[in-house]
Amino acid sequence: MRRKQLKRINQKIATLFLICLISLAITGYTYSRWTDIITMLGTINTGSLKITIDNQKLIPDIGYSKTPDNKTVTISAEITTGWQIWVGITIKNKGTVPVTITYTLTASNHIEYEGYFRNETHFYGPYTTIPPQVWDDLNQTNLPPPPGEQTLPIDLPAGDKLVVWQKIRLQDPPPTSFTINIHSEYLGTLDPWQDWCEVIYYLRVRG
């Protein structure tokens, strides 16, 4: 019995000794090869660039159509010599970054456009709230352009609006059955990012 007990005790001591030995070895190894890292984690969410035609006003009001995405206003008219229209639009920066607004006017037949038509375009803003003197107060009796216009390019901060007044006038008599498409395109850019909106005129000379 005594021998058996002694054997058990010896086994226990040996086990404990081995455990100590192994743990010491592991501790020594980990200490001697101690390495670690520190980290920087980054998340970058990019913004968005979007411009739309927020509002429009025609003087005289001859009617228009507008796409559901508020990108294009289309005006169709039968015209005669001396015909003119003032078209006002408000361009809103609906993105999260500021944009620079520029503008181009093109016609389906540029030479004929130059020959018969005259145009003028005036820019106002940027505004967070549009003042009535550049929008609400303007009508058939109080015609544009209002004072205080800006020159392009104009920086339009996110959420702000820009007012544009454009006059198209048929100055000289064109040939009969003359038709022309005029595209007034407004471009919002921030380096390589860009967006656009436009006013299209479909004009046909009354026979």
Partner: peptide, 24 residues
């Protein structure tokens, strides 16, 4: 320094990770 380059997309999520390893 984190520099957003020209081809970066709009409304996008980019991530990066920097690990500095050291020893005793």
């Amino acid at each position: 320094s984190v520099h957003v380059l020209q081809p970066a997309k709009q409304n996008w999520k980019y991530t990066f990770q920097i690990k500095i390893g050291f020893s005793c």
